[in-house]
Design a protein around this nucleic acid. Structure first.
Lengths: 193, 193
DNA sequence: CGATAGTGAGACAGGTCTGTCTATCTATGC
DNA sequence: GCATAGATAGACAGACCTGTCTCACTATCG
């Protein structure tokens, strides 16, 4: 009964690969290392994922899904648009300070796979676009659509930049300054230029 | 006379490696490809650079120096702090639209080399810190030091995030939204919260 | 002319990479 | 009990990786 079922193996490979890609990188992580740490045979991995590319895409999808579900839960608890955006920044603040923070896996994927036609590039870009859309929909509750679009873009930039700064060893300053700028951006709305 | 001098070879290797690292990535670019495209012997490269790590650090330093010199020249022409910041965003806007834009080499280096003790990581982080310091010094002409610090951090985040969005295929929207947010940030200064 | 320093071409070592294949084992469903 | 599907270990292919080494060549300087 402690025996893992078939589909468990698949998920176990995904999670092991996720941990390695995050810590070590995509190119720098070899198949041999993934199967060694996951403790599965090579053919088991290749049965589930025809190639390393497929595995990377699956890992990114898995991570993106987990991220979306967490933000969904947080959004429910917040009443106003400002607070909803605030909970997103809160999430990033906690993430920056978590023990196994190694930067954004999606940004790293975009960095390592420069070809926009590559499935890994596309899977990573999808997550960024999804996050921007999420924030845009929130902002549309409090401002016109075009303004919500440019503001959500700016918020996404702050988040991505803050993640980079956190990665460079300044997690506390990163989230503080990003949050401050974001809140000022929302509070200043409607004021005369 | 059309013959290249000795030190030219060294610089030629650096520039060829730079073009490849930018387009292809650090791990994905092999020594063999660098020397093939630079049209030099392998031993010539290894005489100048004891290892690939050394070459990568040199490439990052070369690129950072070129960047700094360009910003120095632009800063001279601008009168007010606001305009100086504006010229930096202008530079990024032109870069985003240039033919061989492939994202930020330093951000990619940070993504591929996760260990903060790695010389490549450090060389890349240095450029980000230098850019932040440059903007902080400009902002200190118009605001107190602590405010200049957090504002320069926010501006750096906008720039890094905009670079990521430009890389994902939206260069025009990226620089427009980043610039708009940055200018609003500076204009709103002193207004009551 | 001769010495020296940089360069060239390429073999080579030792390791790693992705992906394939075989042959054996095991667990579940009927 | 038995068939089937999934898992196992490990060899293997063929390519690529970094870095070393040898030996011949060339250009400059005195």
């Amino acid at each position: 009964m402690a025996e893992p079922t078939r589909t468990d193996k698949r998920q176990h490979i995904v999670e092991t690969a996720y941990a390695l890609f995050k810590r070590v990188g995509f190119h720098a992580t070899g198949i041999d290392r993934i199967i060694a740490e996951a403790d599965v045979a090579k053919m088991t991995m290749y049965r589930h994922f025809p190639s390393k590319d497929d595995l990377m895409v699956e890992v990114l999808g898995y991570r993106a899904g987990r991220f979306e579900r967490q933000l969904d839960r947080l959004a429910e608890q917040a009443a106003t648009p400002e607070r909803k955006i605030g909970t997103i920044f809160d999430w990033y603040g906690r993430w920056f300070h978590s023990a196994d923070f190694h930067g954004c896996l999606f940004a790293h994927a975009l960095a390592e796979f420069g070809d926009p036609a590559h499935p890994v590039f596309q899977a990573a870009a999808r997550q960024k676009n999804d996050l921007k859309r999420r924030m845009r929909l929130i902002l549309e509750e409090m401002m016109p659509a075009d303004e919500a679009d440019s503001t959500s873009a700016a918020l996404l930039m702050l988040i991505e930049g803050a993640t980079l700064m956190a990665r460079m060893g300044q997690p506390a300053a990163a989230i503080r300054d990003a949050r401050k700028a974001a809140m000022a951006m929302l509070a200043a709305r409607g004021r005369p230029q």
